[in-house]
Nucleic acid binder design. Structure first.
Lengths: 206, 206
DNA sequence: TCTTGATTTGACCATCTGGTCAAACTCACG
DNA sequence: CGTGAGTTTGACCAGATGGTCAAATCAAGA
């Protein structure tokens, strides 16, 4: 599988199928819990065939993480420094919550990686992620200094947004077990609740 | 290993050592990632010796989860229905955050179990946990109806408390990677931030 | 001290798992 | 159609892993 040449039609198709299958398997069973055979079957390939496209289990996992990291941070990058602060932040929260709803596998994949100590992406966290968060924190601080939102610790604000939104994907079973009686879909109410929380937190003036 | 007779001194000592070692290993590597040998070594026993005390890897894991579940829910049970609502809820939040700080292994163990779909404790979630949450939700609703705290969805309030506090244990590496510059211990600031969030959310009267 | 049940262990096993390899097959293009 | 690169596979391997077992060792009460 020459990596310098342009990928053939079959390469594109199979690589895509492998990553899709790997996302299913890794997010459900974790890195150690997943087996190459499982991924191969899910991708509709034999094990040696899969290893023809990715050298190793590690390589699949690494490719998957890399491809997803950008998508995952896009909502944060989409905050407009020139927009209305409260509107921008509530919009970010809404987008993150929608990502939990629409991409729970991705959320669980990252959660698992971080819980394990981020062995594969620690470098990215303390460089790319850190700078992105530093920038956003500066922006939030600037907004607060101008009196346009309340004074809050910008880093912990960001952590709390990540935590609250991703919780609905990562702890889905627990949430559904507790809410078993009523509405089966927790997301509409979650959206209302988070809006309430952050509106009350961020609205300036006592 | 007679299970009906009273445990001997050696049984007590070794079972405790095994559970302590298993907590380390399972919380760091997950169920599939952990090996019986690893746990045995960490407990200072040979593998067959360990399997003399617990029939299987599954049995160790089950015993560990069972022993921890109660401890984990104690702070919720400690809420006093006759106390001051805001004080009780902020106290619960503080206790949960302290548990994240002092028992991160337990937090990660549960997080891992839930993310995997709670295969071992799903029954407990939809019975014991659910009733405990239902009770607390009723209490919160009652407080809100009496105008003593703001009107909030009590279930999502509880979810948000779990989410925000456990985040500091489960996503520790990420938090420290992002905060790398300043104070190495995020907990004091986290406590202040969470206090601010929930005080603003719950204080009644717009 | 003797005896009996509790404890410990070395050797072993079946299965699973990540990965290899040579050979076979397929596809696109001249 | 012929050909060479790209693709697929059955057979295989070494190491890891959960678990077993008979035999050896130890602890404590009679």
């Amino acid at each position: 599988m020459p990596e310098d040449r342009a990928p053939t039609r079959i390469q594109k198709k199979n690589r895509a199928a492998i990553l899709e299958a790997a996302l299913n398997v890794f997010s459900a069973d974790g890195f150690r819990g997943a087996t190459v055979d499982q991924i191969a079957v899910a991708a509709g390939l034999s094990k040696p065939n899969l290893l023809y496209y990715y050298r190793s289990k590690d390589a699949i996992y690494a490719a998957l993480l890399e491809r997803l990291l950008d998508t995952w941070l896009d909502p944060l990058r989409a905050i407009d420094p020139d927009g209305d602060p409260l509107h921008e932040l509530l919009g970010y929260i809404r987008r993150k919550l929608e990502m939990s709803r629409d991409y729970p596998r991705e959320s669980r994949l990252f959660a698992n990686e971080i819980i394990r100590g981020a062995p594969h992406i620690h470098a990215v966290l303390s460089t790319d992620l850190k700078s992105l968060v530093d920038e956003t924190a500066a922006l939030i601080r600037h907004w607060a200094a101008a009196g346009r939102i309340a004074e809050v610790n910008p880093y912990h604000l960001i952590f709390s947004i990540w935590s609250l939104t991703q919780h609905y994907a990562d702890f889905d079973v627990q949430i559904r077990a507790v809410l078993a009686d009523g509405e089966p879909d927790p997301y509409p109410e979650a959206a209302r609740y988070l809006d309430q929380v952050f509106t009350r937190l961020l609205t300036p003036g006592r």
